[in-house]
Each structure stands twice: as C-alpha cells, then as structure tokens.
Design a protein around this nucleic acid. Structure first.
Lengths: 212, 212
DNA sequence: ATTAAATGTGAACAATGTCAACATTGCCTT
DNA sequence: AAGGCAATGTTGACATTGTTCACATTTAAT
C-alpha cells in the first residue's frame, strides 16, 4: 500500500509493526530506566497491546532482550566504525578517539552497556575471534586492524594483534565497568585516569620485553 | 554452655545459628549454582526453616546478599593479602602473583566475582579511594602500596599511585570480566594473553610519556 | 468468497519476595 | 524458681512477573 509506515493503520487490533516497536521501546526502557524496569506488562502497555502479544514475535523475554542487544551493538558500531575508518587521522589519534567514544558510550548508556558485555544474555557472535581481513571493520574487530596498522608504522611492537586487541579492549572495558558500576570513586579524575591509561597502553605496546 | 557450636541444639524450633548459616549457605549456592539459583525458599528449605525466617535476620533479600558480598570480599582478601605482604618476593614477582591469583579467583568463582564487582548490589566501602597508609593493606588498597614500592625501586615511573592502581586494576578486572562473561573465546590462549598483558602494563608504567 | 496463517486477547498458573498475625523458645528480672 | 518480654520461627496470604492456553480478529492466499 502507499501508506507510509510511520502512519499507524486505522485498525486498532493489529498493531502493524509490533516486533520493531517492541525492540525499539524495550531498548529505550532499558537505556533510560534500567533493565529491571523492563517488564513485559509495562512494555506492552506502552504500546497499547496485551502482555502475551510479545509471544507472537519472540519465544521468550530473553529472546526479546537478545534482539535489544543486537540493536545496541549496532548503535555502538555506528559510533566506533567511523573513527576506525577515518584514514585522515593518525593511528594515535584514532586510538585515542576510539577509547573516548567507547567510554562515553558506557557512561551515557550504562545499563545498555552492561547488557551488551555482561554475562546474563548472549548473542551468538563473539568478539575478537576469527579475524579474517581488515575489511571486517565492524565494531571491535576494527581494533585489530588499527593495531596492525600501528605495527606497520612501527608505533607499537610486532605481536599477535588478537592478543594485543584483547589486552587493550580489556583495559578500556575494565575502566568502563568499574566506573559505571560505582567501584571507582574518581569521577572527577576521569580525564586524568583515561589519559594516563592510554599512555601506559601505548608505551607498553611499544616495547617487547626481552629479558625477565 | 559447654556445647560446641558445631553441634546443633536439640531444639528443632530455634535453629540457633541461622544468620551465619544463611550467609554461608547462600554464598555456597551463589558460588556453585549461580545467583539466580539463590531463592529464599530454596535457601531456607536446605536449612530446614521456613521462608520468612530470613526476615528475622535480614530486612530483605538484598541485605542478605550484601552480607554474602562481604563474605566474598573476605575470601578474596584472604588470597591476595599474603601475596602483597610477602616481602621475600620481588615487586615484579608479587605483581605477577597478585594478577594470577585475582584472575584465578574470578575464573573459579565467576558468579561470586560478578556479585562483588558488579553493579546490582553494593556494599558501603569503595575500592581505591581515600588511601591513607600502606598498613591499610587489605585487598586492593594493597595494590597502591605495591606500586609505591615499585616507584621507590625505580621499577616504574613516579605518578599518582591511585591513578596507577586504578589503571592496573581496570586492566585485570577487564580481562577477568570478559573471560568469565564469555566475550573472549580465547581460553586456550589465556596464559599468553595474561603474560602479554602484564608485560605491557609493567613496560607502560616504566616510562612516563614526556612529549605528545 | 473461503480458508488458513498470522497476530492479538483474556484468563489462568507457577515461582518468588514480602508481610502480617500467630507460635515457640530463651533470657532477664524479681 | 516464676513471670514476662524480646528474639526467633511458622503459616497463610498477597502482589508482581513470565508464561501458556484457548479463543478472537485480521490479513493474505487460493
């Protein structure tokens, strides 16, 4: 039909776009009110449908949340990918911007971030494994490409880039987690910690330990 | 009375040691079966009491869990403190052993670890803030002392030890979290990642970035 | 137009944390 | 030793939540 999808059908029985609306609204609820605020009753009430309508589109609440997670990854990728792909910036610049953007995402979307990188719900795809080529630039895989580039330019030492990426990611993820989970009461020192952290990382990656 | 506390009272009505038993059994359930397996009904059933008996000792399930967390911190401290205080080992050795012990704890007690350093439940005390003196050697505060010692010996560069500790802790915490939450499919590479990670940290801490 | 698949509804159920009223025990004061 | 009170434990009930089932309504295909 020629009806734009943004316009609701006159039919009040069939929602018309329930699956997508469920995901979008659920993501919003998780992001703004926390994961505990996401109950099927509240979610469906906001969309004007009944609780069990969810089960026509998702086999369980968990499946719905997995959908939300997929959407969350897309949002994060949307922020990170342009930075990784900006060939006009130096490697060091991109490294810095990537870390800041990642931390900002976690700080501004703590519940969503925990959902993405927590343990309770998992999507199929895993991070930082089976890296094939640098065109596989999505999300954290792009970090491997960036590190390879850094190796070629002699900015950091040669080493298994997947191991390097795991180390770097773990550092930033750890910082993000401790921060948003309230274990580092140093919010005012955040800039100092971040800058110091990045410099330790880059300096540490620069030299391979020979002896000891 | 002369009755050893390990021997249950003949009275079947009053448990006699319910608060401690609740904490111990709850910790065991969390550790071995996951946080979701910890329901008040199951917990009290195992102890032979009724569900609501819990509320004579804890105002809520959350309060009980906070008690479990406190016990969890004690266990972790019990593992870490001896390492930090072993003045016979070199700083580098202690640094390595601390990291390994910390990671081992997370790997062998993933649910408990998430409880300790997650966001859902919080104890009052926070980590790595208000460090007073190196005698305050408990848990992660001891890391600050170790870093100060490393600074004195010239093993790492002079810098704010709290910032250094936050950076180091975040790195190891990030590695532990990603691992136990299934985001790093590199379990077989674990040793390699850990060793590399520690060398990057030590090398990075060694040099203060002057320019750039 | 008929039929079947897709989608939505309402009632009901089980699990769970919580609470209130009541029961039992232990301890303290006299 | 007796009485009384606080501590501790029990039972039944309730609200919330995810889930399921039988049924209703709409859409699409034949």
């Amino acid at each position: 039909m020629n009806t734009p999808e943004s316009i609701k059908k006159t039919s009040s029985y069939h929602h018309g776009n329930l699956k997508e609306s469920l995901l979008t609204t659920a993501l919003e609820m998780v992001d703004k009110e926390g994961i505990d605020a996401l109950t099927l009753r509240e979610l469906t009430m906001r969309l004007g449908t009944s609780r069990s309508a969810v089960y026509r589109h998702f086999p369980s609440k968990e499946a719905l949340i997995l959908g939300v997670i997929e959407k969350g990854y897309e949002r994060l990728d949307l922020l990170l990918t342009p930075i990784f792909q900006d060939k006009h910036s130096s490697v060091a610049e991109r490294f810095d911007r990537m870390g800041r953007e990642y931390l900002d995402f976690a700080i501004h979307h703590p519940t969503l971030y925990r959902l993405l990188f927590g343990d309770k719900y998992h999507r199929e795809r895993e991070e930082l494994c089976d890296y094939k080529d640098e065109n596989q630039a999505t999300g954290l895989y792009a970090l491997i490409g960036l590190l390879l580039e850094a190796q070629e330019q002699g900015i950091i030492a040669q080493a298994n880039p997947m191991v390097q990426a795991a180390m770097v990611w773990a550092s930033i993820h750890g910082l993000a987690s401790l921060l948003i989970d309230g274990h580092l009461l140093m919010r005012e020192n955040m800039e100092e910690i971040y800058v110091y952290s990045q410099s330790v990382l880059l300096n540490g990656l620069k030299r391979i330990p020979k002896d000891e």
